[in-house]
Design a protein around this nucleic acid. Sequence first.
DNA 1: CGGTAAGCTGACGTCATGACAGGACAAGTG
DNA 2: CACTTGTCCTGTCATGACGTCAGCTTACCG
Lengths: 215, 215
Amino acid sequence: MTGQVRTVDGRVAGRRGQATRQKLLDCLSEMLSSSPYRDVKVIDVARKAGTSPATFYQYFPDVEGAVLEIAEQMAAEGASLTELLEGRSWAGKAGWQTAQELVDGFLEFWRKNDAILRVVDLGAAEGDKRFYKLRMKILNSVNNSLADSVAELQAKGRVDKDVNPAAVAGSLVAMLAAVASHQKGFSSWGVKQAELKPNLALLVHLGVTGRKPTR
Amino acid sequence: MTGQVRTVDGRVAGRRGQATRQKLLDCLSEMLSSSPYRDVKVIDVARKAGTSPATFYQYFPDVEGAVLEIAEQMAAEGASLTELLEGRSWAGKAGWQTAQELVDGFLEFWRKNDAILRVVDLGAAEGDKRFYKLRMKILNSVNNSLADSVAELQAKGRVDKDVNPAAVAGSLVAMLAAVASHQKGFSSWGVKQAELKPNLALLVHLGVTGRKPTR
DNA sequence: CGGTAAGCTGACGTCATGACAGGACAAGTG
DNA sequence: CACTTGTCCTGTCATGACGTCAGCTTACCG
């Protein structure tokens, strides 16, 4: 499944090589959280990893390539976001619970990976297909589950016919992602995180079911 | 109001100078729509404007500085977004109309300025105060109006007490912005723009009033 | 111990950056 | 018309990052 790790010039990476490679990824990841993406230089990453720029280019074609690698690793973890929705109910008190847990889990995931997610978001917005697909991969699990929930409620006649489940789900997920990446913005705008969450959950619940939650 | 335009070394720019300056801004703006932010180089902008890099540095400290300038111009135009909400009603059919027009106007504005808004978003997400403030400035008009609407309905008892108007408004605006910058994402996901808008309007209406719109 | 492939780096040509000094040019003055 | 003044632009340069290559070192294996 996971094809052998290879250097740019085609050699197979051994134990030591993989270690250096991983160290470079870790350092890049760290740099991304502490300085603007635009200012991240190969030479700094290499220095931080205690190696030389040439070594970096042995494992990655460029900074973007390495970022994609990190993002790919993260996307794998992101699949676990599905659990936030699998088999959950949207009826009554359980529905409110579901909405809250979704918001909680989502914000937490985003907070933990914010640096790399920012870059993925930018790449996707700029139209880069690779980043765009990656973003889909990360969001798809949540997105699909949400859309399914809406479609299901719709089939039961509890949601209007003219609602497009995919559009609603996509919009809600986009909202969660956007709020997550601008969390600091909210807090210095006078809205505390603790206040933010229930209001987000409310919006999610409203969007999915069309009704206010019963708490 | 608009203090005199000055060069980096403090001289006042005359007619000709302002023209070159503007030309540089226009070219930068154009480059931002056609290539990734990370790859925009001063030398390319200068070449495109038919001048030299040295000239660029006479008017702007760096690329970021020029971007801020463009964004500032755009923020001024963005103030007109307030009109989308000023004096509008959220009751009955008029409410549905209001929601639709808000979504329409917002998406249009974002589409028209997407390149520069992407960069502002990234800068804000990375924690740069200048970009962060700018983003606020652009969104504040809509944000405040929305929050006011919610607060008003809340005072009338038509919205639950435990709703935080600022949090809801902020989340809805964030949603609109996020969906706008990933419009292409939706379309290639199987959701057409025409379908997207009414669903967004529905979510906005639900969020503000807590009820489904009457159409 | 010798061979082979992996792993790393010094050194190099290329190019963007950012600063400066000085040339070009328009406008006003005697 | 020559001269001055202040704006505007560019040639040039030192610095430093980029990305490549040849070649050195290290590890593994028979």
